[in-house]
Design a protein around this nucleic acid. Structure first.
Length: 132
RNA sequence: GCAGUCGGACGGUCUGUCGCUGUUACCCAAAGAGGUAAAAGAGGAAAGUCCGGGCAGCGCAGAGCAUUCCACUUCCUAACAGAAAGCUGUCUGCGAAGGCAGAGUAACGCAGAAGAAAAUAACCGCCCGCAAGGGUAAGGGUGAGAAGGUGGGGCAAGAGCCCACCAGUCGUAUAGCGAUAUACGGGCUGUGCGUCUUGGGAGCUGCAAGUUCAUGUAAACCGACGUUCGAGGGUUGCUCGCCCGAGUCGGAGGGUAGAACGCUUUAGCCGUAUGGUGACAUACGGUAUAGAUGAAUGACAGACAUCCCGUAAGGGAUACAGAACCCGGCUUACAGGCCGACUGCUACU
């Protein structure tokens, strides 16, 4: 049975506290304004998916929960629709990766805009990962 | 018809594509992971976290003191600082209505760069008197408040000194469950705030409560105090009193940070009837409707609906805002429209 490429189930969300802590202290970063990613490559372990994602929108920038949710959902959508080629690359490199995506603008961006930026961001990350 | 007051209820709908969450059924599989399908999946305020409860853990022999909250009346409720129906004063409005305040004042204190004076008042003024001195709160300016107010009588001039009306207060009667209202009568009356007094309450901490399982493990090491000559702990903040008591406290270092329960069936929601002015209560019938946890409930496209602009073609707008244990309130935000009762103005009959 072939897997649909555009799914983004909960299992691919980053949850482990220890990995998140590691991510923020040791992670490298890539930026494609208004998105900024902090990421870390991990050794192959059985339980983790190829890419674990954490999306964060600061309360400081958007006071209302409604606005934060809106942006998170748009970012998630942008990632969901663009992740397939990215994951394939990581997989052929034999790596696993954990990424925190941060939103660093004070204004909400439209869905099309974010999709475009997400492609850029993922390419930037790939470049940096493959250099190492 | 226009303008407005109060109360109530609502706050988008549908289709397609790609997704998310838990549930149920089936499929694959040693198991896990996975796949397919079905039905379901944010609010009136989910918000602010300001009150009150349920629930949970800990605590609770008792006494005193302190602290703190509430305060017109009756009533509703699980409870409340909330709601309902009223009462008194005051302010706003032509009005329907709405806002604000509301236990007591015996004692003590404060007011203050005002004013003569802030309570056993005499600066100016007025009166008596040769004068010394005395009488006087009518008039003056200050102030939130000046010795109840206005008018008349009276007097040397004045003053509840006397009278009428009005306000307050106390007593009696009547009406009301009551706050109060009305009538009659008596005494003859300063304002605000605080302390205080009276009456009624308040154990503490919150679902990151708490329970179970898994992983790991340490009754290891160092120091201090101590076992009836009692270390230390519990007992709301303190005191007394009471109780437990052989371990307790600190340092350094290490481990976990996952899963399940709690967790959604409830003071539940809807309807009808009865009682009540009403909040609400009772009875009967129907109904099942989110449970995430680095946190789902979405993204995109199109159509419709409503409103606004425009002669038209067409264009624009659709708010405030996102569950986190659950309820009852309060407060705040809000495009747009709906229903009921009432008020004012205008027109017509």
């Amino acid at each position: 049975m072939e897997q649909h490429p555009n799914k983004f189930p909960l299992r691919e969300h980053l949850k482990s506290k220890s990995i998140i802590e590691k991510l923020y202290t040791e992670g490298a970063s890539a930026t494609a304004f208004p998105l900024r990613a902090v990421f870390i490559t991990l050794p192959r372990e059985q339980q983790l998916p190829t890419a674990s994602i954490l999306i964060s929108v600061a309360k400081k920038r958007f006071r209302h929960a409604v606005d934060r949710n809106l942006i998170k959902r748009r970012i998630r959508e942008a990632y969901r629709l663009n992740k397939a080629p990215f994951i394939k690359e990581i997989e052929t490199d034999g790596k696993k990766i954990a990424i925190a995506i941060l939103y660093i603008d004070n204004k909400p961006g439209s869905t099309d805009y974010l999709k475009h930026k997400m492609q850029k961001l993922l390419n930037n990350i790939l470049e940096k990962v493959q250099k190492v």
